[in-house]
């Protein structure tokens, strides 16, 4: 047979507009899952300042002498960008949980014909919860 033409893997990414609901759900689930793992590491780093605090270490925050743990947390929470990232973390976690429940249902063979609708429902719910959380996360912080 004649040689044939292989269009390669790259064509898939160029076609993202044509991806179906289930494909987006899969991409988002991977992305959010790994974001959560990433957050876990930063979370451990921040919380480990409690060890320093337990050893009596202190730091200066807004002219006050506070222990290392309180200082780290309050310092971070005083940053606008950290508050924004927290909203993002909530969005990522909520989507992962909702879509995770959807995937567990799919694994059990429940509601397979509504799998696209349940994905859209996860997205909408995630959006709603995220928007509703904004006042809480952004209260008392200056730009």
């Amino acid at each position: 047979m004649s040689q044939s033409y292989n269009r390669g893997l790259i064509e898939d990414f160029g076609r993202w507009k044509e991806f179906s609901a289930g494909m987006w759900a899969w991409i988002f689930h991977k992305f959010t899952g790994w974001m959560l793992i990433g957050y876990l590491f930063t979370h451990i780093a921040v919380l480990s300042s409690a060890i320093a605090a337990a050893n009596g270490e202190t730091m200066m925050l807004a002219g006050e002498q506070v222990n290392a743990y309180t200082g780290t947390i309050q310092g971070l929470e005083g940053l606008f960008i950290v508050r924004i990232l927290e909203v993002g973390l909530l969005a990522v976690a909520v989507f992962h949980i909702l879509n995770g429940i959807r995937l567990l249902m799919v694994d059990l063979g429940i509601g397979l014909t509504a799998q696209d609708k349940s994905f859209y429902a996860s997205l909408v719910l995630t959006g709603a919860i995220t928007v509703a959380s904004v006042p809480t996360f952004l209260s008392g912080v200056g730009l």
């Binding site: 179906s20 609901a21 289930g22 494909m23 759900a25 899969w26 995937l103 799919v106 694994d107 063979g109 397979l112 014909t113 799998q115 696209d116």
Partner: peptide
């Protein structure tokens, strides 16, 4: 199978492929 349902979406004979794979 990562349950993306792409196959089920395109099958011209409407075979519930993902359902069969999951089973």
């Amino acid at each position: 199978c990562q349950t993306q349902f792409s196959c089920t979406d395109v099958c011209p004979k409407d075979i519930p492929l993902t359902e069969h794979i999951q089973e």
